[in-house]
Amino acid sequence: MFITINQVQKQYSDKNNQPVDILKDINLTVQKGEFVSILGPSGCGKSTLLSIVAGLTKATSGEILVNNIKITKPGKDRGMVFQQAALFPWLNVMENVTFPLKKEMSKKQAEEQAKKHLQMVQLGNYTGHYPHELSGGMQQRVAIARALAMNPDTLLMDEPFGALDEQTRARLHGQLENIWTETKKTILFVTHSISESIKLSDRIVVMGTKPGTIIQDIKVDLPRPREKYKKEMLEIEDHIMGYLKREIDKVVSEELSNAASS
């Protein structure tokens, strides 16, 4: 297995110093080149899980192996794309994309590498622009190019299109699918959108909340591009909604009782 998540737990201490389970008994394996979505309602710990895989957050217990190496810290083998583009505003597009390449190759090589990936997200003509001159969708594409340019085996994406409008999101779905087919990266994609996960992924890992656990692992066996299979996609959506509804009801009723008691 390329990524193995083994018995991962994550606890936080709340205000009264009581441990709260964020993630409980997470076991998951991902094959090389697989596109896996992690789907769940807000608060289920899906972003925390991704952050642990990235090495940015420490698990309370359990271990994660990527390519048979135990994860202890962030590394260039795992590129990360956040919900906000997180581009450095003092650098232009080219300098942002070459940021991770500076140490390991010459300037010229780095720029060639960057240019190649900027063309992949169709921003080859924007190398001299600064982030504040780009739209949200363009910024996110630069962020994807930046993550790809360091040639990681794995791409971790934390609701990367969550802050974008519907049309932009649909366009970027297409681009991401092309990039994935072209580069064969292993992608872990966190989202709360059921349709997004069905459209993009080979497998959907459905998470429940309080504590965050994996409740279903669903294979999506539809040919790509999937626009033609609207009916089948809707069926899967209904199927997943069945699992999620209980979880969402749980969150809502808890919020209501919290509101009533405060």
Partner: peptide, 26 residues
């Protein structure tokens, strides 16, 4: 977010300070 992004790109220690934290606080 800048710090996390830089860490996933392999920056740490002095490199992280000089290339991210310092310019970000200009």
């Amino acid at each position: 977010l800048y710090i996390k992004a830089a860490q996933t790109m392999g920056a740490r220690g002095w490199d992280l300070f000089a290339r991210v934290i310092f310019p970000a606080s200009i």
